[in-house]
């Protein structure tokens, strides 16, 4: 089954996000779209429990896939299996869906936005606004590396608390994106102290340039 829509969830969902997730699943299944819910980061905790019965309406299960990132799951629940209905899966598999044209559905609370309708570019924009806290920092980089392993064209924009990734020690791991030309790196110019050079080479952008970057991207993934 090929997903036409990927609902990507990274943050541990609160009640509001769960309601949005529920609505997004119902909306996509209602439009008879093949739908993949993919849990990453702290969101994998959702797979501790069985998937909601309401997602199991007659005919719906053939169009709905529920996946949990294997590595993120193992880090948080070693030796356990996800609950009934959830399957372990790789980030490479997720990227394969995106590269084959699946849309990313909007879940504002977990900061994943749908592809910009005007976006005609080939590059995915990954916007990192979460501070470098482990294991989330490693997992955000893994998401980018998984895309790179399939030759996805990517741009990474660090903004807000995410600009801390540009400084050591966190910049060390992200440096490989620059050294191996895996992604183009940008940061919000105003989010860093003036005159302080980042350890990770990246291009500073003003708000207008950041908006243009997102507007032209094939899809935007907010981390």
């Amino acid at each position: 089954m090929t997903a036409q829509v990927v609902i990507f969830l990274r943050a541990e969902p609160g009640k509001r996000t769960l309601r949005r997730l529920d609505q997004a699943v119902a909306r996509n299944l209602g439009h008879r779209r093949q739908t993949l819910v993919f849990l990453h980061g702290d969101a994998v905790s959702l797979a501790v429990d069985n998937c909601p019965e309401r997602w199991r309406s007659p005919g719906a299960d053939r169009r709905l896939e529920l996946q949990v990132c294997t590595a993120a799951w193992q880090r948080r629940h070693p030796g356990r299996q996800p609950a009934s209905g959830w399957q372990r899966a790789s980030l490479v598999g997720l990227w394969d869906r995106l590269l084959r044209g699946a849309d990313i559905d909007c879940l504002v609370d977990c900061k994943v936005q749908p592809a910009q309708p005007e976006g005609t570019g080939a590059e995915f924009l990954i916007e990192v606004s979460a501070a470098p806290v482990e294991p989330g920092s490693t997992e955000m980089l893994e998401l980018v590396l998984a895309g790179a392993s399939l030759d996805a064209q990517m741009q990474v924009l660090f903004r807000g608390a995410g600009v801390a990734h540009l400084d050591l020690p966190d910049a060390r791991a992200w440096q490989q994106l620059h050294d191996f030309e895996l992604a183009r790196l940008f940061h919000a110019a105003g989010a860093r102290p003036e005159g302080l050079m980042p350890a990770l080479p990246s291009i500073g952008l003003d708000s207008k340039a950041m908006a243009a970057l997102a507007h032209q991207a094939r899809a935007v993934i907010y981390l």
Binding site: T138, L141, E142, L145, A148, S149, D151, R172, A173, Q175, Q176, F180, E181, L182
Partner: peptide, 18 residues
């Protein structure tokens, strides 16, 4: 070297480039 430099295992793509 890659593991000690970046803290991650390299991708095949990175090994080929290197």
């Amino acid at each position: 070297d890659h593991y000690h430099r970046y803290g991650t295992v390299p991708l095949m793509r990175q090994a080929i480039m290197a």
